[in-house]
Design a protein around this nucleic acid. Structure first.
Length: 654
DNA sequence: GGCGACCAATTTTTT
DNA sequence: ATTGGTCGCC
């Protein structure tokens, strides 16, 4: 017990020892929030609460894992259930989705945003919508926004915005298709869980008696559905604990409403409010810069972080001639710090968009600086990985015709889109899952189309796929790779596809990943593996133990900290982003400012903000303007270094 | 109808 | 860098 309460300030201790009733902790950047949350969980457990009566929801799987580890080392007990909203919902639905009676079963597939987009394109094609007038990604954004706000097609029909009403038909088609495919998208995980709890009080009671303590981290970034979920999961005892910081809300584009945190006390009038404003992470000068910057936002609760740390060194603002010089400066500075004995894992580079990593990577590579890229072209989104996953998804969910199409298309099978279309139509007519139809030994008699030898051979192959052993997971994935013929097919393409070798290696890495998963969860089913793969975030791949430089977007850096931080591309067009300048409101600009605030407050010892005079954008040179946010920094605490016209020409490619 | 080759178009941020 | 479209060949 004693070490749980060790070295805590009064405010922190009050939060840690809070037992019953609603609790809101407004925790500024670097104020020891994680510490407070993990210790509160440990404290609850030590006071006799069973770990499995606690449900904690974090923003990323990595945060969840960390929390589990820390609680475990504090208590030595079995850890509570910690996960993201999405993974918790996936588990609720695996169990209970059939209660909803919309035709979906516990074997549902989780579609990622790419799958979502292809379904929307299909719907648009069928409805004869011109994709140039209304782009599929705009439709997706609207549908997602509607879903996250809890608006169904009927509700959208009443929307005052005609552009929203325009997509009502597509919304209905899209939903119908997902139901037929026995699939859900990310938003559905939340939406259907909310529906489950709202419409089936008996299920809700089950969850209430199971989870007596609910904790929600990063509350400023919850959307309406997540808010409803929290309220629905909170039992009559109201043991709900939310933690967050309105100044770090950076996901409004995904439906996050930081008003949720502002109104917690209205929702729970008995709530205890604890504010953590002392920062233990950064130097005074870093904090001055951050405080001064965020003061320019009008919509916020007044909050001023303070620290008793050293004043440190001024924040540097570096103006270079080109993007190449910018990358060069970072590489050289990293090398210099290394010579001073700073480890690479103590440094990180942040940027606004994933595409900005390219010039950095080139310089770092030639300078011999090892780095890890968080995000970017994500592993699980590579085509060969998606091809392999489609096989597994089809095994689990025999109704997944989208997966079937991918399986057919990833290598020559003698079967093409037209034939698949006919088979899918037949399976719909018969009311039989498409894989079950194909795998049926009586397929030729049940399929009313032409059944030539190639199709019969493919049907036999499908039967073998369906009957492969599904556990243990590692063996299953290896067997599917073997059966799929993906590797020989890639080997054959070696000459024409320069990436063929990489792809083969990625497939091998995927088998390793499955074996690892099997090792961590010996009894887990194939479904569980697919779920993990579908729901892992990019920050989840961040490995703080390997001694390399970390590169990531400003969104991905949330929740992390590094002694030395570089932020590149601090220019109009990136910060704020061009889309915000062109179409955004003041509120959107404020979110961009918060994004930079989050980046700066990750740093313990020093921050450098870089911007270039000229930059290659879409293969064309463009002249850049420093970000408006740079002029908002306190000039006394900032050191401005202008390198334009000095060493630039040496490295310039013009 | 299937398949391979070639060209264009898209990328803000992510569970 | 993936994908979706079109074209010519089997």
């Amino acid at each position: 017990m004693s070490d749980i309460l060790d070295q805590l300030t009064e405010a922190q201790r009050a939060a840690v020892t809070h037992m019953e009733g609603p609790l809101l902790v407004v925790a500024g950047a670097g104020s020891g929030k994680t510490r407070v949350v993990t210790r509160r969980i440990a404290h609850l457990i030590q006071r006799g609460v069973w770990p499995n009566q606690i449900l904690a929801m974090t923003f990323t799987n990595k945060a969840a894992r960390e929390m589990v580890e820390r609680v475990q080392s504090l208590t030595g007990e079995r850890p509570p259930w910690v996960g993201t909203f999405h993974s918790a919902c996936a588990r609720f639905l695996r169990r209970d989705i059939e209660v909803l009676g919309d035709g979906r079963t516990g074997q549902f597939t989780i579609y990622d945003d790419d799958d979502q987009l292809s379904i929307i394109k299909l719907c648009m094609k069928e409805a004869g919508v011109n994709p140039h007038e209304l782009t599929p990604s705009a439709v997706r954004a609207r549908l997602s926004r509607a879903k996250c706000a809890g608006v169904d097609p009927d509700g959208l029909e009443a929307d005052p915005d005609w552009q929203s009403r325009q997509v009502v038909g597509l919304y209905r088609d899209y939903e119908r298709r997902l139901r037929e495919l026995n699939a859900v998208d990310f938003d559905d995980l939340l939406l259907l869980s909310v529906r489950l709890l709202q419409e089936h009080p008996a299920r809700r009671d089950v969850y209430h008696s199971r989870f007596r303590y609910i904790l929600v981290d990063e509350y400023q970034d919850t959307n309406h559905l997540q808010y409803l979920l929290m309220r629905l999961l909170t039992g009559p005892e109201q043991n709900v604990h939310a933690t967050g910081d309105p100044d770090q809300s950076i996901y409004s584009w995904r439906g996050a409403e930081y008003r949720n945190i502002m109104e917690f006390q209205k929702d729970f009038p008995k709530a205890t409010l604890i504010r953590l404003e002392q920062n233990y992470r950064s130097t005074q000068l870093i904090l001055n810069a951050a405080n001064e910057l965020i003061r320019f936002n009008t919509e916020r609760i007044d909050k001023e972080l303070f620290t008793e740390n050293d004043s440190g060194v001024p924040t540097q603002v570096i103006h270079t001639a080109t993007d190449r010089d910018e990358a060069d400066w970072v590489a050289q500075r990293v090398q210099a710090l290394r010579l001073e004995g700073v480890r690479l894992r103590q440094m990180a580079v942040f940027y606004r968009t994933n595409a900005q990593s390219r010039p950095l990577e080139e310089r770092l590579m030639s300078a011999g600086v090892p780095y890890q890229l968080i995000g970017g072209t994500r592993f699980y989104h590579r085509q060969e990985i998606k091809d392999l996953l489609a096989h597994l998804q089809l095994m689990v969910n025999p109704r997944d015709a989208v997966a079937l199409q991918r399986v057919v298309g990833c290598r020559p099978t003698g079967v093409g889109p037209k034939t698949v279309e006919a088979v899918v139509r037949q399976s719909a007519d018969d009311g039989v899952a498409v894989l079950d139809l194909l795998a049926d030994p009586a397929f030729p008699t049940r399929f009313r189309g032409r059944c030539n030898a190639r199709l019969a051979a493919f049907a036999a192959w499908c039967r073998e796929l369906r009957d492969l052993p599904r556990s243990p997971v590692g063996d299953c994935v290896a067997a599917v790779v073997e059966h799929s013929g993906i590797l020989p097919h890639l080997a054959e393409r070696q000459g024409r596809d320069p990436l063929a070798l990489d792809r083969q290696e990625n497939i091998a890495a995927m088998i390793d990943r499955a074996r690892e998963f099997e090792h961590e969860h010996p009894d887990a089913a194939l479904e569980a593996f697919l779920e993990e793969v579908a729901l892992v975030a990019d920050v989840d791949s961040h490995d703080p133990d390997s001694d390399v430089l970390s590169l990531m977007t400003l969104h991905a850096c949330k929740g992390l900290e590094f002694p030395y931080v570089f932020i590149v591309g601090v220019e109009e067009g990136y910060m704020p982003h061009q889309n915000v300048i062109d179409h955004g409101s003041d509120r959107d600009v404020e979110e961009e400012r918060r994004l930079l605030y989050v980046g700066i407050t990750r740093a313990r010892r020093a921050v450098a903000l870089l911007h270039a005079e000229d930059r290659f954008l879409w293969d064309r040179a463009s002249t850049r303007v420093p970000s408006r946010f740079l002029s908002e920094l306190p000039s006394d605490d900032v050191e401005r270094i202008d390198l334009v016209g000095r060493r630039s020409r040496r490295y310039s490619r013009w």
